[in-house]
Protein backbone atom coordinates (compact mmCIF):
# COMPACT_ATOMS: atom_id res chain seq x y z
CA UNK A 1 0.00 0.00 0.00
CA UNK A 2 2.73 2.43 1.00
CA UNK A 3 6.31 2.07 -0.03
CA UNK A 4 9.10 4.45 0.91
CA UNK A 5 12.49 3.82 -0.61
CA UNK A 6 15.75 5.59 -0.04
CA UNK A 7 14.11 8.70 1.40
CA UNK A 8 16.42 11.62 2.12
CA UNK A 9 15.38 14.88 3.76
CA UNK A 10 17.68 17.87 3.95
CA UNK A 11 16.94 21.11 5.73
CA UNK A 12 18.40 24.44 4.76
CA UNK A 13 19.04 26.30 7.98
CA UNK A 14 20.49 29.64 8.94
CA UNK A 15 23.75 29.29 10.73
CA UNK A 16 25.03 32.58 12.04
CA UNK A 17 23.80 35.76 10.42
CA UNK A 18 23.06 35.18 6.77
CA UNK A 19 25.12 32.03 6.21
CA UNK A 20 23.10 28.95 5.40
CA UNK A 21 23.93 25.34 5.99
CA UNK A 22 22.49 22.08 4.76
CA UNK A 23 21.51 19.51 7.35
CA UNK A 24 20.64 16.05 6.18
CA UNK A 25 18.35 14.65 8.84
CA UNK A 26 16.98 11.63 7.00
CA UNK A 27 19.29 9.37 5.00
CA UNK A 28 18.34 6.16 3.21
CA UNK A 29 15.06 5.68 5.00
CA UNK A 30 12.92 2.76 3.89
CA UNK A 31 9.52 1.50 4.93
CA UNK A 32 6.67 -0.43 3.40
CA UNK A 33 3.18 -1.07 4.69
CA UNK A 34 0.72 -3.55 3.27
CA UNK A 35 -3.04 -3.46 3.64
CA UNK A 36 -4.19 -5.18 6.82
CA UNK A 37 -0.83 -4.79 8.49
CA UNK A 38 0.46 -2.85 11.50
CA UNK A 39 4.01 -1.65 11.02
CA UNK A 40 5.60 -0.10 14.08
CA UNK A 41 8.29 2.52 13.66
CA UNK A 42 10.51 2.62 16.74
CA UNK A 43 13.59 4.63 17.57
CA UNK A 44 14.92 7.32 19.85
CA UNK A 45 13.74 10.90 19.58
CA UNK A 46 15.60 12.51 16.71
CA UNK A 47 15.74 9.28 14.71
CA UNK A 48 13.37 10.65 12.06
CA UNK A 49 10.10 8.99 13.05
CA UNK A 50 7.98 12.11 13.03
CA UNK A 51 9.66 13.51 9.92
CA UNK A 52 8.67 10.39 8.03
CA UNK A 53 5.04 10.97 9.02
CA UNK A 54 5.30 14.60 7.98
CA UNK A 55 6.76 13.58 4.63
CA UNK A 56 3.93 11.11 3.97
CA UNK A 57 1.34 13.72 4.91
CA UNK A 58 3.11 16.41 2.87
CA UNK A 59 3.47 18.78 5.80
CA UNK A 60 7.23 19.26 5.93
CA UNK A 61 8.27 22.89 6.38
CA UNK A 62 9.28 24.93 3.35
CA UNK A 63 12.99 24.72 4.01
CA UNK A 64 13.04 20.93 3.60
CA UNK A 65 14.23 19.26 0.42
CA UNK A 66 13.16 15.70 -0.19
CA UNK A 67 14.56 13.05 -2.51
CA UNK A 68 13.90 9.35 -2.92
CA UNK A 69 10.80 7.42 -3.80
CA UNK A 70 7.42 7.32 -2.08
CA UNK A 71 4.60 5.28 -3.59
CA UNK A 72 1.03 5.06 -2.31
CA UNK A 73 -0.97 2.24 -3.93
CA UNK A 74 1.62 2.07 -6.69
CA UNK A 75 1.34 5.73 -7.62
CA UNK A 76 4.06 8.23 -6.77
CA UNK A 77 3.22 10.41 -3.79
CA UNK A 78 3.82 13.94 -5.00
CA UNK A 79 3.23 16.98 -2.86
CA UNK A 80 -0.08 17.66 -4.63
CA UNK A 81 -1.18 14.08 -4.16
CA UNK A 82 -0.21 14.20 -0.49
CA UNK A 83 -2.47 17.19 -0.06
CA UNK A 84 -5.33 15.48 -1.90
CA UNK A 85 -5.04 12.29 0.11
CA UNK A 86 -4.39 13.85 3.50
CA UNK A 87 -7.41 13.42 5.74
CA UNK A 88 -9.07 11.18 3.14
CA UNK A 89 -7.09 8.11 2.13
CA UNK A 90 -4.27 8.87 4.58
CA UNK A 91 -5.19 9.93 8.11
CA UNK A 92 -3.21 10.88 11.17
CA UNK A 93 -4.12 9.99 14.74
CA UNK A 94 -2.56 12.88 16.61
CA UNK A 95 -0.43 12.57 19.69
CA UNK A 96 -2.66 14.38 22.16
CA UNK A 97 -5.88 16.34 22.49
CA UNK A 98 -3.67 19.40 22.10
CA UNK A 99 -4.24 18.86 18.39
CA UNK A 100 -8.00 19.33 18.73
CA UNK A 101 -9.68 22.72 18.65
CA UNK A 102 -10.18 23.53 22.35
CA UNK A 103 -13.26 25.66 21.66
CA UNK A 104 -15.22 23.19 19.57
CA UNK A 105 -17.30 20.24 20.75
CA UNK A 106 -15.56 17.00 19.89
CA UNK A 107 -18.56 15.56 18.04
CA UNK A 108 -18.52 18.51 15.66
CA UNK A 109 -14.79 18.22 15.13
CA UNK A 110 -14.97 14.57 14.27
CA UNK A 111 -17.93 15.26 11.99
CA UNK A 112 -16.03 18.01 10.23
CA UNK A 113 -13.18 15.58 9.65
CA UNK A 114 -15.66 13.19 8.07
CA UNK A 115 -17.13 15.92 5.87
CA UNK A 116 -13.69 17.07 4.75
CA UNK A 117 -12.95 13.52 3.71
CA UNK A 118 -15.84 13.73 1.25
CA UNK A 119 -18.93 12.50 3.11
CA UNK A 120 -22.15 14.47 2.89
CA UNK A 121 -23.41 16.13 6.06
CA UNK A 122 -25.97 13.46 7.03
CA UNK A 123 -23.56 10.67 6.12
CA UNK A 124 -20.86 12.29 8.23
CA UNK A 125 -23.26 12.64 11.15
CA UNK A 126 -24.18 8.97 10.85
CA UNK A 127 -20.50 8.01 10.63
CA UNK A 128 -19.74 9.94 13.81
CA UNK A 129 -22.63 8.30 15.67
CA UNK A 130 -21.54 4.88 14.46
CA UNK A 131 -17.88 5.46 15.34
CA UNK A 132 -18.62 6.86 18.79
CA UNK A 133 -20.89 3.91 19.50
CA UNK A 134 -18.17 1.55 18.34
CA UNK A 135 -15.69 3.05 20.80
CA UNK A 136 -18.21 3.05 23.66
CA UNK A 137 -18.41 6.83 23.69
CA UNK A 138 -21.83 7.87 24.96
CA UNK A 139 -23.85 10.24 22.76
CA UNK A 140 -23.29 12.97 25.34
CA UNK A 141 -19.54 12.84 24.74
CA UNK A 142 -20.12 14.42 21.32
CA UNK A 143 -21.16 17.60 23.09
CA UNK A 144 -18.09 17.77 25.36
CA UNK A 145 -15.10 20.01 24.78
CA UNK A 146 -11.62 18.47 24.56
CA UNK A 147 -10.55 19.52 28.07
CA UNK A 148 -13.52 17.68 29.56
CA UNK A 149 -12.37 14.31 28.27
CA UNK A 150 -10.60 11.81 30.50
CA UNK A 151 -7.36 10.24 29.26
CA UNK A 152 -8.97 7.10 27.90
CA UNK A 153 -11.89 8.96 26.33
CA UNK A 154 -9.53 11.41 24.65
CA UNK A 155 -7.65 8.49 23.06
CA UNK A 156 -10.88 7.03 21.69
CA UNK A 157 -11.97 10.38 20.29
CA UNK A 158 -8.60 10.77 18.57
CA UNK A 159 -8.87 7.31 17.07
CA UNK A 160 -12.40 8.22 15.91
CA UNK A 161 -11.04 11.13 13.88
CA UNK A 162 -9.05 8.68 11.79
CA UNK A 163 -11.83 6.10 11.54
CA UNK A 164 -14.60 8.38 10.27
CA UNK A 165 -12.43 9.56 7.40
CA UNK A 166 -12.53 6.13 5.72
CA UNK A 167 -8.77 6.28 5.45
CA UNK A 168 -6.86 3.35 3.98
CA UNK A 169 -3.61 4.26 5.66
CA UNK A 170 -3.63 5.37 9.30
CA UNK A 171 -0.59 6.93 10.96
CA UNK A 172 -0.60 6.97 14.77
CA UNK A 173 2.05 9.31 16.16
CA UNK A 174 3.19 8.35 19.70
CA UNK A 175 -0.30 7.44 20.92
CA UNK A 176 0.76 5.89 24.23
CA UNK A 177 3.30 7.73 26.42
CA UNK A 178 2.32 8.54 29.98
CA UNK A 179 -0.88 6.52 29.79
CA UNK A 180 -1.97 3.86 32.18
CA UNK A 181 -1.23 0.33 30.86
CA UNK A 182 -4.97 -0.44 30.49
CA UNK A 183 -5.49 2.62 28.30
CA UNK A 184 -2.37 1.78 26.32
CA UNK A 185 -3.64 -1.72 25.62
CA UNK A 186 -7.07 -0.40 24.65
CA UNK A 187 -5.59 2.16 22.26
CA UNK A 188 -3.32 -0.43 20.69
CA UNK A 189 -6.21 -2.85 20.25
CA UNK A 190 -8.14 -0.18 18.37
CA UNK A 191 -5.22 0.15 15.97
CA UNK A 192 -5.05 -3.63 15.54
CA UNK A 193 -8.77 -3.65 14.72
CA UNK A 194 -8.27 -1.04 12.03
CA UNK A 195 -5.66 -3.28 10.44
CA UNK A 196 -8.00 -6.29 10.59
CA UNK A 197 -10.49 -4.24 8.58
CA UNK A 198 -7.92 -4.00 5.82
CA UNK A 199 -6.34 -0.66 6.54
CA UNK A 200 -2.60 -0.16 6.70
CA UNK A 201 -1.44 1.16 10.07
CA UNK A 202 1.84 2.88 10.91
CA UNK A 203 2.43 3.05 14.65
CA UNK A 204 5.12 5.57 15.50
CA UNK A 205 6.45 5.05 19.00
CA UNK A 206 9.58 4.99 21.13
CA UNK A 207 8.09 2.19 23.20
CA UNK A 208 9.16 -1.22 21.88
CA UNK A 209 6.91 -3.08 24.27
CA UNK A 210 3.84 -1.23 23.03
CA UNK A 211 4.91 -1.83 19.45
CA UNK A 212 5.36 -5.56 19.98
CA UNK A 213 1.88 -5.92 21.46
CA UNK A 214 0.21 -5.38 18.08
CA UNK A 215 2.73 -4.92 15.27
CA UNK A 216 3.29 -7.42 12.48
CA UNK A 217 6.61 -5.87 11.65
CA UNK A 218 8.85 -3.40 13.43
CA UNK A 219 10.98 -0.87 11.57
CA UNK A 220 13.83 0.37 13.73
CA UNK A 221 15.06 3.88 12.97
CA UNK A 222 18.42 5.25 14.02
CA UNK A 223 19.82 8.71 13.23
CA UNK A 224 17.46 9.14 10.28
CA UNK A 225 17.91 5.77 8.64
CA UNK A 226 16.10 2.43 8.77
CA UNK A 227 18.52 -0.03 10.34
CA UNK A 228 16.21 -3.05 10.30
CA UNK A 229 12.65 -4.09 9.50
CA UNK A 230 12.11 -7.09 11.73
CA UNK A 231 9.12 -9.37 12.19
CA UNK A 232 7.53 -8.83 15.57
CA UNK A 233 8.22 -12.38 16.71
CA UNK A 234 11.94 -11.98 15.94
CA UNK A 235 12.36 -10.07 19.20
CA UNK A 236 11.27 -12.79 21.57
CA UNK A 237 12.80 -15.51 19.35
CA UNK A 238 16.16 -13.85 19.62
CA UNK A 239 16.34 -13.44 15.86
CA UNK A 240 16.74 -9.64 15.64
CA UNK A 241 19.63 -8.73 13.39
CA UNK A 242 20.98 -5.25 13.90
CA UNK A 243 23.22 -4.51 16.89
CA UNK A 244 21.17 -1.38 17.63
CA UNK A 245 17.92 -3.34 17.66
CA UNK A 246 19.54 -5.84 19.98
CA UNK A 247 20.79 -3.05 22.23
CA UNK A 248 17.30 -1.54 22.40
CA UNK A 249 15.81 -4.91 23.29
CA UNK A 250 18.43 -5.64 25.94
CA UNK A 251 17.94 -2.25 27.58
CA UNK A 252 14.28 -2.87 28.44
CA UNK A 253 13.73 -3.04 32.20
CA UNK A 254 12.21 -6.52 31.95
CA UNK A 255 15.25 -7.76 30.04
CA UNK A 256 18.78 -6.88 31.05
CA UNK A 257 18.29 -3.10 31.49
CA UNK A 258 21.80 -2.53 30.14
CA UNK A 259 22.23 0.52 27.91
CA UNK A 260 24.96 1.07 25.36
CA UNK A 261 26.93 4.22 26.01
CA UNK A 262 27.15 7.31 23.83
CA UNK A 263 24.39 8.94 21.88
CA UNK A 264 22.92 9.12 18.43
CA UNK A 265 25.15 11.15 16.05
CA UNK A 266 23.88 14.64 15.24
CA UNK A 267 23.05 15.52 11.63
CA UNK A 268 26.05 17.89 11.61
CA UNK A 269 28.49 15.09 12.33
CA UNK A 270 27.23 11.88 10.78
CA UNK A 271 29.87 9.16 10.41
CA UNK A 272 30.93 8.48 6.81
CA UNK A 273 30.23 4.79 7.07
CA UNK A 274 27.54 2.99 9.03
CA UNK A 275 25.65 5.51 11.17
CA UNK A 276 25.86 3.21 14.19
CA UNK A 277 29.58 2.50 13.78
CA UNK A 278 30.71 4.81 16.60
CA UNK A 279 28.70 2.88 19.21
CA UNK A 280 28.70 -0.59 17.72
CA UNK A 281 30.31 -3.51 19.54
CA UNK A 282 30.89 -5.33 16.22
CA UNK A 283 32.52 -2.45 14.39
CA UNK A 284 35.34 -3.21 11.95
CA UNK A 285 37.26 -1.01 9.52
CA UNK A 286 34.96 -2.10 6.74
CA UNK A 287 31.99 -0.53 8.54
CA UNK A 288 33.54 2.91 8.40
CA UNK A 289 34.04 2.94 4.62
CA UNK A 290 30.50 3.32 3.34
CA UNK A 291 26.87 3.27 4.42
CA UNK A 292 25.78 -0.36 4.47
CA UNK A 293 23.04 -1.30 1.95
CA UNK A 294 19.95 -3.28 2.90
CA UNK A 295 20.86 -6.96 3.17
CA UNK A 296 18.39 -9.81 3.53
CA UNK A 297 19.34 -11.71 6.67
CA UNK A 298 17.15 -14.43 8.17
CA UNK A 299 14.23 -13.30 6.06
CA UNK A 300 14.23 -9.56 6.72
CA UNK A 301 16.17 -6.51 5.57
CA UNK A 302 18.92 -5.07 7.77
CA UNK A 303 21.56 -2.41 7.24
CA UNK A 304 24.55 -4.16 8.78
CA UNK A 305 27.30 -6.06 7.02
CA UNK A 306 27.89 -8.22 10.10
CA UNK A 307 24.25 -9.06 10.74
CA UNK A 308 24.50 -12.70 9.65
CA UNK A 309 26.89 -13.67 12.39
Amino acid sequence: MLSVQDLNITFTLYDRGLAQKQLTVITQLDLDVKAGEVVAVVGASGSGKSLLAHAILGILPDNAQVSGKMLFKGEPLTLNRCQDLRGKAIALIPQSIGYLDPLMQVGQQVQRTAQLSGLSRPAAKAAVDRTFARYRLAAIVQRLYPFQLSGGMARRVLVSTAVVSQAELVIADEPTPGLHPDVVTETLNHLRELASEGKGVILITHDIEAALQIADRVAVFYAGTTVEIAHAQDFSNNKIRHPYTQALWRSLPQNEFIPISGSQPTPEALPDGCLFSDRCPWVTQECQLERPPFLQVRGAPVRCIHADR
Binding site: A55, G68, K69, M70
Partner: peptide, 17 residues
Protein backbone atom coordinates in the same frame (compact mmCIF):
# COMPACT_ATOMS: atom_id res chain seq x y z
CA UNK B 1 11.48 3.28 -11.77
CA UNK B 2 14.64 5.23 -11.58
CA UNK B 3 13.36 8.75 -11.29
CA UNK B 4 12.38 10.39 -8.10
CA UNK B 5 8.69 10.88 -7.53
CA UNK B 6 8.80 12.60 -4.26
CA UNK B 7 7.23 15.93 -3.46
CA UNK B 8 10.46 17.55 -4.48
CA UNK B 9 10.48 21.22 -3.72
CA UNK B 10 12.52 23.65 -5.73
CA UNK B 11 15.78 24.47 -4.02
CA UNK B 12 15.46 27.75 -2.17
CA UNK B 13 16.61 30.41 -4.58
CA UNK B 14 16.30 33.36 -2.29
CA UNK B 15 17.71 33.42 1.12
CA UNK B 16 14.60 34.21 3.13
CA UNK B 17 16.50 35.86 5.90
Amino acid sequence: MATSFLPRRPAIRFNRR
